[in-house]
């Protein structure tokens, strides 16, 4: 197959085109001097994005499995976490960790707060995604494993989770893009992310149309990269399975 006709390549080309267009726009409109500032902003946005993803991807399966298979105390703890972080706004969560915790003697770096709050927020949604995917694996798989004398945790690790994983990848793609967009909130707890830098440059240059068009293109390019990554994962994870792309 021609490499450029592969849909994943098209995503990569589209993402690069977004970045190139953003750079061309900056150069053509006298904003070239601001590019290093924007790049630093992108660096902060990407750091929060990766850190938050890592937190979410670890927390979500743990919360989901606690809710599904934990004893009653652990189950209620997991439900409490999931409902609290799904049911309140991400901005309030950021403020709470940043402005309220110091009143209880806990002061955290802004970057730590950003990664923790957004990671836990997306992790709470992710927990429901994981739970749904685990429950979507047919009961016959559990029964077959039980007939082979596998324990519950062996069945989960070896049989159920590998199949659930494939089912949940598309939903995770959505969540990670949500996370990317939510990173724009961190400017409100003093972090100089891409959105913050854009506002600064806008105030200095008053080139509102150009500045926010550039930022729009950069966010779009980043989210296309996330989509690309998830498609690759999906392709690899579904190898041999009779669903989704692959084989």
């Amino acid at each position: 197959m021609n490499a450029l006709s592969h849909p994943h390549w098209r995503l990569l080309v589209a993402a690069l085109a977004c970045f190139a267009a953003a750079f061309a726009l900056a150069s053509a409109t006298g904003l070239a001097r601001s590019v290093p500032e924007l790049l630093r902003g992108i660096g902060v946005t990407a750091t929060v994005m990766f850190g938050g993803s890592a937190v979410a991807i670890v927390v979500a399966p743990v919360a989901a499995l606690c809710k599904l298979y934990g004893g009653s105390a652990i189950r209620w703890l997991a439900i409490g976490y999931i409902e609290t972080f799904r049911g309140t706004s991400a901005l309030v969560q950021l403020f709470w960790l940043f402005f309220v915790l110091p009143h209880f003697g806990i002061t955290l770096e802004p970057l730590t707060v950003a990664i923790a709050a957004l990671g836990l927020n997306i992790g709470a949604y992710g927990a429901e995604v994981v739970r749904g995917a685990v429950l979507a694996v047919p009961r016959g798989q559990w029964e077959a494993a039980s007939a082979l004398n596998m324990t519950q945790s062996q069945t989960l690790r070896r049989v159920v989770l590998p199949q659930a994983w494939v089912l949940m990848i598309p939903a995770w793609g959505n969540l990670l893009i949500e996370l990317l967009k939510a990173t724009s909130l961190v400017s409100l707890i003093t972090l100089a992310d891409l959105t913050f830098k854009a506002q600064q440059i806008n105030q200095n240059t008053l080139q509102t149309v150009e500045v926010f068009s550039i930022v729009l293109l950069v966010y779009l390019g980043l989210s296309l990269l996330i989509t690309l990554g998830m498609r690759q994962l999906e392709r690899r994870a579904s190898f041999g399975l009779a669903r989704g792309p692959g084989t």
Binding site: G140, A144, A145, L148, N149, Q154, V166, G240, L241, A242
Partner: peptide
């Protein structure tokens, strides 16, 4: 109820190794 993410051989090996 075969494990769809494992080859025929891996399906038969799984319990031998794990159990």
């Amino acid at each position: 109820n075969l494990f769809p993410h494992m080859t025929a051989l891996k399906n038969c090996m799984e319990a031998l190794v794990r159990v």
